[in-house]
Amino acid sequence: MNDMEKKLTQLKQEYDSIQIPEHGREHLRNKINEVNTMNDNKNNSVLRRVAGIAAALALLIALPNTNASLAAALGDLPVVGGFFQVVTLRSYQYDGDNASASIETPEIKTEGESEAAKQVNESVTEYVDAVTDDFKAQLAEYGDAANTDVTVEYEVVTDTEDWLTLRLYTEWVEASGAQFYKYYNIDKTNDKVVQLSDLFQENSDALTLISENIKTQMREQMAANENVSYFIDSDMPEEDFQQVKDDQNYRFDEDGNLIITFDEYEVAPGSMGAVEFTVERSVFESQLK
């Protein structure tokens, strides 16, 4: 053992013998109780709302991605197509020394009536309002010492003849940050909000095929670049990435390939941030509805 290792080991022993204050834990418990009492008044925190809304959406969501020309030929389906426009409905800005917010609420405008657009608009507004309220509550409670920075932005990530995909990005930074995306996919032809699993035939193994494809890509990327790391083939297989969720965030690119996206920590360490994978259409095409 060299000199420094010896010293490090001694230092570790000294570190371990740092004395814990007699009433430290008790004080901490009191503090926790105090915080909890304060918190009980504002129990509607953001992420619980996100979860709630995602669940609500899953309920609303249904149905097939019939081919556009077929739908048009049938003639009896409400073909909305054409004019979908996404505009900023309202914007909330706050800029303080230790707290800031930049929150935008998008709205989908359509030429005619669109049930899908209406659903998404309602869901988006409810969510963004909730985030804004949470931020304001934080400000009311802690003033400018809130140390909270909140961003909500939107982007139309896909707008083809058949699909409109609106992406909502939320960043909530406090002691540490959280970022997450929510994708709303509108099948313009059928005027439906569609989640990933609803793209495919019943009893299809498309989600497995897609997941396996993603795993292969993960392994390839990790082999090619040592800075890349995903939750796969680890010592704890039960915590590895298993399969995409029924309501996994996705969108189509121009060529009809699927782009599957994961929030940070979902399939990779936080250092990787949010990640996405393109799955070639040939992988799942035969399974589409």
Binding site: P21, G24, L28, R48, W172, A175, G177
Partner: peptide
Amino acid sequence: QDAVQDAACKALRSWKTLRETKYLDTWLYR
């Protein structure tokens, strides 16, 4: 003591930023 108490307050106020419990320890350390 102050630092740990402050950290506890932060953690309890921003528990929503903890995405999965398997990161609980490293998140608290952070």
